[in-house]
Every structure is written in structure tokens, then in C-alpha cells.
Amino acid sequence: MSKKVMPTPFWQGQSFEIQTEDKKIFYTQFAGEKNGELYIQRPQDKKNMYMNILRGVPVVVFFFDIEEEGLFTFKTNIYILPDGIAYLEKPDPEQIEKAQRRRFFRVKIGVPMTLELPDQKTSSNTIELFTHNISGGGVAFLHPKKITETGDKVSGILQLKTPNFQSDVRFDAKVISIVKTEHDVFRIALEFLKMKEPERADIIKFCMFKQVELRNKLKNDRM
């Protein structure tokens, strides 16, 4: 891997992907920096389960760098405070490297989605909703009712749109987790099945655009 000497500063809301020593993947967002520590939201896996954090556990972090337009990585340790706030040790610039392998980067964003459920679940098996997060590997959404079961096969359409790009991506997926949140709504996670690479590429491109859009918005708000 080639070294990146001067990384772009991390920014609030930036998506991080965390890999543990046993290759488990968790997703989070950067929340702020203080005293050389990178504070993050409590990491969750693709089944919406929280990461069990032991003090000073080694992890590998992946993030998308907007200026360099590429995926980068660094090794660090993760910690959790008694109040449940998680943070990472900040890496030195020379510790950040360009990642060579492809990853499905997850972004928290509401995207219009049409979802077709198994016939027996509702009187109408087609519903319109918004995603809770999206990546090249799957999506999650929130719903006040448990409208499906883990293992169910569903299909749908994601409506991706930017000022210079629009794509209606059809997909087949499997329900991989259903979690009732503290707000008494269900967070349902889907994993794409046999998605064609052009459709997956559209989703990845959309996710990267939304990261750039969020960073630019935050920058303009501070001006």
C-alpha cells in the first residue's frame, strides 16, 4: 500500500468503517476531535448490533477521502467511556495509507425506496419508504411495525438522484436483521442478492457523492 503523507482533516458526520482483529465489520460516523482522540458514534454491524468494545482493542479504520477521491485506512485502538461514548486514538499522518481492496462503504442517508414484501405480510405487499442507511452491499430502513421476518426475500427499487446523476436501481435482497430501537420503531436491514455490477456501481457512486455533499454543506455552514 502507498503512503499518504498529508491526509484531509476528518470532518463531523464522515463515515468510518471499523474492522476488528477477527475481521468483523462495524459502521460509525466521526463526531469530533478532542485531545488527540477521534470521537465516534457507537459502531454497529450490518445487522444493527452494537460493537462490544473492550478498552484499547486494536482495529483497522477505513474512510473515504474526498480530496484524494479514494479509500484510505489506518490502524489504531478503540475505547469506550463509562457513559457509552466511543473514541479512537488519532493516527499520525504517516500512519494513514491508501486501501487497495474494494469495500462497500455505508452512508446514513434517506433515499426514496419502493419495497415489495412477501404477500402474506400485509394487505398490500408494496410500500413506499425511505432508507436509514445505504451501501453497495445493502440498505436499512425504519418502520413502526414489524412488516417482515429475518430471512425473508424482498425486492425493490432505490431512487438515486443528484444534480448530475439519476438512477432507479432495482434489487433483490434478504432480510438479515430486525431490531426494535429505543424509539419503539423497527430498524430492518437488507442484504442485496446477486446484484449486477453496474447497479452496484451506481449505488457506490451515489454514496460517495453524498459524503462530498455533506462535507461541503458543513464547511459552508461554518463560513
Rank of each mutant, 00 (worst) to 15 (best):
K3W: 04
V5C: 10
T8R: 14
F10Q: 07
W11E: 15
Q12V: 14
Q14V: 00
I18T: 10
T20R: 09
E21F: 05
K23I: 09
K23A: 12
I25P: 03
A31M: 03
G32P: 01
E33D: 02
E33Q: 08
E37T: 04
L38Y: 07
R42W: 12
P43Q: 10
D45F: 03
N48I: 06
N48W: 07
N52Y: 03
L54W: 08
G56T: 02
V60L: 08
V60I: 02
F63G: 02
F63Y: 15
I66M: 03
E67G: 03
E69Q: 14
G70A: 06
F72I: 03
T73K: 09
K75P: 01
T76V: 06
Y79I: 01
I80K: 13
I80Q: 15
I80F: 05
L81H: 09
L81R: 12
A86P: 01
P91Q: 02
P91M: 07
D92V: 00
E94Y: 07
E94L: 00
E94V: 08
Q95F: 04
Q95R: 13
I96G: 08
K98E: 14
R102E: 15
F105N: 11
R106T: 02
V111K: 06
M113F: 04
T114L: 13
P118D: 04
Q120K: 13
T126I: 15
L129V: 03
L129Y: 04
G137L: 09
V139N: 01
P144K: 11
P144N: 11
T148L: 04
T148R: 06
T150E: 15
G151P: 11
V154I: 12
S155T: 08
S155M: 09
L160D: 04
K161S: 11
P163E: 08
N164T: 06
Q166P: 00
S167N: 06
V175N: 09
K180Q: 14
H183K: 15
R187I: 05
R187M: 12
L190V: 10
E191P: 02
K196V: 11
E197Y: 00
D202N: 14
D202P: 00
V212E: 13
L214V: 11
R215C: 06
N216S: 11
L218V: 08
L218P: 01
K219A: 14
N220W: 13
N220T: 15
D221P: 06
M223G: 12
